[in-house]
């Protein structure tokens, strides 16, 4: 078995692609978690998503392979090595679904901005808390009124 933390260079080079994509993924996750702006969060989500796509596509790559498209005259040379077409199909679907979610998220951001006048997370929370407090005060006044 390979030495996992030693200087096994084939192992390191063979896994470098996964590690780079994971770093990219974590960049996206950091944006989602740490940034307060809703549009920025959606951009972070997109970066995360693209990193996952890259991971899948790199799993489907075969060394020395070519794009999985036959010649137009359908004279198939059996010696030609093709990369795995299945991840490509899955990721095609995922990209389109990703755009659908992005557009929905952005529409929500527009709607929130309309209602609250801001798209910063902490201001929205503050406004929410204030409304709750006002509500609670109002109701307690109503409840404590003598009948």
């Amino acid at each position: 078995m390979v030495k996992e933390f030693g200087l096994d260079w084939t192992f390191v080079i063979g896994h470098l692609n996964y590690w780079l994509f994971i770093i990219l993924m974590m960049t996206g996750l950091y944006i989602v978690v740490a940034k307060g702006n809703l549009v920025k969060k959606i951009v972070g989500l997109n970066i995360f998503q693209t990193a996952v796509f890259m991971l899948y596509i790199s799993v489907g790559k075969v060394k020395g392979g070519t794009a999985p498209i036959f010649p137009v005259d359908m004279n198939i040379d059996p010696d030609v090595l093709y990369s795995n077409p299945l991840p490509h199909v899955l990721i095609l679907t995922a990209i389109v679904v990703g755009v659908a979610t992005t557009s929905l998220g952005l529409a929500l951001a527009v709607r929130i901005r309309e209602e609250y006048g801001t798209i910063e997370e902490d201001s929205i929370q503050k406004i929410d808390r204030d409304t709750c407090l006002q509500d609670a005060n109002l109701h307690s006044e109503v409840a404590s009124e003598p009948r």
Partner: peptide
């Protein structure tokens, strides 16, 4: 493109 996924 470099990973052979031209459609993607």
């Amino acid at each position: 493109v470099t990973l052979d996924a031209v459609d993607v």
